[in-house]
């Protein structure tokens, strides 16, 4: 992965996920951060910190981003969600417009 094609998503605990921009931009919220002309700090550094999203949830969200891209390209599989994560995941999804 070229660095300029990626973005670093950082969880509440400081864990870093490096994902493709295309994938991250499945989230409307992240898309807005990365593309808004106002010069968000996120745009410049290619990093977004989510102080309210735990590592477990952020990992799940990154998996969803890639699942979403696969779905769009025709590979339509089931996306598994662990029951104990559902509520927290949902709050994060709501925040991320995903």
């Amino acid at each position: 992965m070229k660095k300029e094609d990626t973005v670093k998503l950082i969880s509440a605990e400081g864990f870093e996920f490096v994902v493709h921009k295309d994938a991250a931009m499945v989230s409307q919220t992240i898309r807005n951060m990365l593309t808004s002309p106002g010069g968000f700090a996120e745009t410049e550094h290619g990093e977004v910190t989510f102080p309210e999203i735990s590592t477990t949830i952020l990992e799940k969200i990154c998996k969803y981003f890639y699942w979403n891209l696969q779905f769009a390209s025709g590979k339509q599989t089931e996306f598994h969600i662990e029951p104990e994560l559902t509520l927290e995941l949902m709050m994060a999804a709501n925040y991320l417009h995903t």
Partner: peptide
């Protein structure tokens, strides 16, 4: 259409 993560969570619930 690809379901949003929100949709998937709602259905899971």
């Amino acid at each position: 259409q690809c379901p949003s993560l929100m949709d998937l969570c709602v259905r899971k619930i």
